[in-house]
Simulated scan of single mutants.
Amino acid sequence: MKSLKVVFLGTPEFAKTSLEAIHQSRHEVVGVVTVADKASGRGQKVNQSPVKIFAVQHNIPVFQPEKLRNPEFLEELRKLNADVFVVVAFRMMPKVLFEMPKMGTFNLHASLLPDYRGAAPINYAVINGEQKTGATTFFINEKIDEGNILLQEELDILPDENAGSLHDRLMEMGAKLVVKTLDGLADDSIQERPQPQVEHPKNAYKIFKEDTKIQWDILSGTVHQFILGMSPYPAAFTTLKIGDEEKGLKIFSGKYELADHGKKAGTLDISKNGLSIYTQDGIYYPQELQLEGKKRMGVKDFLNGFRSFEHITMA
Rank of each mutant, 00 (worst) to 15 (best):
A135F: 01
K263W: 05
G298Q: 08
H261W: 08
L108T: 06
V198Y: 10
A82M: 12
N273V: 09
V88K: 01
Y284M: 07
F226Q: 04
Q24E: 15
N107S: 11
N141F: 03
P121R: 08
K300T: 13
D187V: 04
P101S: 09
S18N: 05
K295L: 09
D37K: 14
K102C: 04
V299I: 14
S253V: 00
A110G: 11
N107E: 06
V62Y: 08
P201W: 09
N148S: 15
G104R: 03
T136I: 02
T313V: 06
L77P: 06
R69Q: 13
I60E: 03
S220T: 12
G164W: 04
G147C: 03
V223H: 05
G266W: 00
L151G: 03
G10H: 11
F226W: 05
T137Q: 06
P201Y: 05
I277T: 01
Q48E: 13
L155V: 13
V7F: 08
G147Y: 06
E153L: 08
Q64G: 00
M297E: 15
Q131P: 02
P50D: 12
H23M: 00
K272N: 05
V32A: 13
E210L: 10
I122A: 04
N81C: 04
K2W: 00
D244E: 15
T267G: 00
K5F: 06
N107Q: 09
R296G: 00
G262H: 08
L219G: 01
D145K: 10
P196S: 11
V30T: 06
A55R: 05
G43C: 10
M103R: 14
S220L: 09
A82G: 11
G248C: 03
P65E: 04
